[in-house]
Each structure stands twice: as C-alpha cells, then as structure tokens.
Amino acid sequence: MYSTVPDGYEKYSDPPPSYSKDTASGVPVSSDGSLYYESSKPAAFQIQSKTRLPWSSGLFGCFSDLKTCLVTCFCPCITFGQVAEIVDKGSTSCGASGALYALVCCVIGCPCFYSCFYRAKMRQQYLLRQTPCCDCLVHCFCECCALCQEHRELKTRGFDMTIGWHGNVEQRNRAVAAMAPAEVEGSMSR
C-alpha cells in the first residue's frame, strides 16, 4: 500500500494493541501495562514509542566542560542539585536537592542510590538511551562522570544551569513575548 515509510515511523500490519481503562485513574493502559494514547494520525504513521535518542555527549566527556568537572569532583551536591531542580521542573530547589544528596552521602556513604533515580527520570523525560549500562551501575561506578553527563545534556538542551528552573521559564517567556507581534492600535473605520 505504501511505497516508502518515513524514518522513525512504523507501518502496522496488525491492529493497534488492545487497551483497557485503569479502574483507579481512568487512564487507558495497554495490555503490557504501559500508557496507551489514541492518536488522530493513521496507524501507519504513528511514531514508534520504543525509539530512544543518544546522549548529546559520552559518559567520559567530562573534560569538555572543565568547570563543571571540577565542581562535580570536589562538591557533587552542587551539580546534582542543579540537575535535580531542572529534572523536577522546579518542584524542588537546587539547595534542597543538594542538601539531601549531601545528607545521603554522610549517612549511607553512597549517594549513587539517590542520584540514579534522577538519571532514570531524566532519560524518561527526554527519551534517552540507557547506555553504557543501567542507571544504578553508571552512578555506582562513575558518579562524577554521570552527573557531569546529565549536566551537559541539560545545557545542550538550552537550560542555563546557574539560574534554575524558574529562571529558565522566565527567560523563555520573555523571549516568546519579545517575538510576539505588537498589537496595532486603532482600526480603520468609516
């Protein structure tokens, strides 16, 4: 029926997966337990949900941003706090997240058990691949490199890490307002 299928799209030969509504929330859920969204596009042009994007830089690309690398080596709670604030979309502050990271580090001695959850959350938000291994192992064996990679990824995506989530939102709102056309005062009348 179709001669070519655009990249990133899948032609379905079978009907879309069956779904039912979750009784507690009423949200459609597919048979494998994942959320199922109906699309207005034909099934032949639905984007594959399994497609994951690569990270903008490698895990060991720490030295491309020497300042972040040094801060992370000597005080990883600062880098973690900045990443956590952006990933949580401002629901927790940089200071609170950094303090909790430092507390976990002092009490347990291994903050990777806390920070790996933020890596997983960030990967889900931006559809990033789980490379080179699972998030927990990346943070257990390369904590500083993992934090630096997450920091670089967010910077690459346009976030100014020094001003936090609310500062980035305000900055983007100002940019959008500046691009909006000015209203024309007075209209023509007879």
Rank of each mutant, 00 (worst) to 15 (best):
S3P: 10
P17L: 15
P17K: 02
P17I: 08
Y19R: 12
S20V: 14
K21L: 14
T23H: 06
P28A: 13
S30D: 09
L35D: 03
Y36D: 10
Y37H: 08
E38M: 08
S40L: 15
S40C: 09
P42D: 05
P42Q: 06
A43G: 07
Q46P: 01
Q46W: 12
I47E: 13
T51W: 01
R52I: 00
R52Q: 13
L59A: 00
S64V: 11
S64M: 05
D65K: 00
T68H: 00
V71D: 03
V71Y: 06
V71E: 09
C73M: 15
F74T: 11
C75W: 11
P76T: 04
P76F: 05
P76Q: 05
C77L: 11
I78Q: 04
T79V: 08
G81H: 13
G81F: 12
E85V: 00
I86G: 04
D88K: 02
D88L: 14
K89S: 15
S91V: 08
S93I: 12
G95D: 15
G95W: 09
G95R: 13
G95K: 04
G95C: 12
G98M: 15
G98Y: 11
G98Q: 02
G98P: 03
L100K: 14
G109N: 09
C112H: 05
C112A: 15
F113L: 12
S115N: 07
S115F: 10
C116S: 09
C116Y: 10
C116M: 09
F117L: 12
Y118A: 02
R119Y: 02
R123N: 03
R123M: 07
Q124F: 04
Q125L: 10
Q125N: 06
Q125P: 00
Q130V: 02
C133T: 14
V138P: 01
C140Q: 15
C144S: 13
C145F: 13
Q149V: 03
Q149H: 02
H151Y: 08
H151P: 03
L154C: 05
K155M: 06
K155F: 00
T156K: 05
T156D: 02
D160I: 07
D160H: 09
M161A: 02
G164C: 04
H166Q: 14
R172P: 02
R172F: 02
N173A: 06
N173H: 15
N173K: 09
R174L: 12
R174K: 10
A175C: 10
A175V: 08
V176N: 10
V176R: 13
M179Q: 13
M179V: 08
P181F: 03
E183W: 05
E185K: 12
G186F: 01
G186W: 00
S187A: 11
M188A: 10
S189H: 05
R190H: 12
